Simulated scan of single mutants.
Amino acid sequence: MFSPLSVTLISGSRDAVLVDPPLTRAQADQVAAWVAASGRRLTHIFATHGHGDHWFTAGLLAERFGAEVVASAGTIEQMHRNVAIRPVFWDKLVPGQIPDAPVTATTPPGNRVELEGHELVIVEVGHSDTDETSVLHVPGLDLVVAGDVIYNGVHQFLVESGDGGRDAWRKAIDAVEALRPRFIVAGHKDKGLDDDAARTVAQTREYLDAVDELLARHTTALGFFDGMLERFPARLNPGALWGGAVALYA
């Protein structure tokens, strides 16, 4: 139905921060049970970017746990955009399954959140698979929670990648790599794969390079789609690839 969603809980001994809450009420219930079972107090909920599958249940979870929703200023702008398109896109995708989702996020001072004395740093990286994206850098764990800047075993969302978007995406990947993480949690990943930073960065770049190559080779969306499936047969959710193919050839 959709690309698998990664939700990350970064925990200290007492408190925790949740990254990229999911899309539907049912998914939020699962995440809530997971957070409650951790025994930590949830202080913040962070969204990496404005696509609704990364934050539409933030308010629901914030109310449940008394947490604060945070995001970069650019992401907050994109949240409002996704609320505006919700009736024609998100609600048609999963009818009746998304809770009310007003934009309640604020931008923390200095784009930083503290977790038991450790800084979690919001790094704005510009366009990736949408505008005004960010990642969360956790230096103490050699970790970047990358949202949709990095993919891991899943077909990448290409609908917004035209008109220089893929070159901008490559710059966002460079910004993540410059943080020198050992581990990257991708916003969409095959749960059977690890979170090795070098591999996921290389494979996300490889996919974008293949897009450029096959767009130049094929004259139709179907030809491009088939070529990408042949190149990346193991990636999950070819529906995302088809949507991108239609948009790029429109």
Rank of each mutant, 00 (worst) to 15 (best):
L5P: 00
S6T: 15
R14S: 15
A16F: 07
D20K: 02
L23Y: 09
R25H: 06
Q27E: 11
V31E: 03
V31Q: 05
A33L: 10
A33H: 04
A37R: 11
R40H: 10
T43A: 09
H44Q: 08
F46K: 00
F46Q: 01
F46C: 11
A47L: 05
A47V: 01
G52W: 05
D53L: 01
H54L: 13
T57V: 11
L61V: 11
A62P: 02
G66D: 12
G66Q: 08
A67V: 08
G74C: 03
E77Q: 13
E77K: 13
H80N: 08
V83D: 07
V83R: 13
I85Q: 12
V88M: 10
I98V: 15
D100G: 11
D100E: 15
P102V: 13
P102K: 12
T107I: 05
P108C: 12
G110F: 09
N111H: 14
V113G: 02
E116M: 10
G117A: 08
E119N: 08
E119D: 15
E124V: 11
S128Y: 02
S128L: 01
T130F: 09
T130V: 11
T133W: 03
S134E: 02
H137V: 06
V138K: 00
V138P: 00
L141K: 13
D142P: 00
V145W: 03
D148L: 14
I150D: 02
Y151F: 15
G162A: 15
G165A: 10
R166H: 05
D167C: 00
D167H: 07
A172M: 12
A172R: 10
A172F: 10
A175D: 10
A178N: 05
A178W: 08
F183C: 06
I184A: 07
A186Y: 04
K189Y: 07
K191I: 11
D194M: 03
A198C: 03
R199P: 00
Q203K: 12
R205H: 08
E206R: 14
A216E: 13
R217A: 14
T219A: 15
L222G: 06
M228N: 10
L229M: 12
A234P: 00
R235V: 04
R235S: 04
G239V: 10
G239F: 03
G244R: 02
L248H: 06
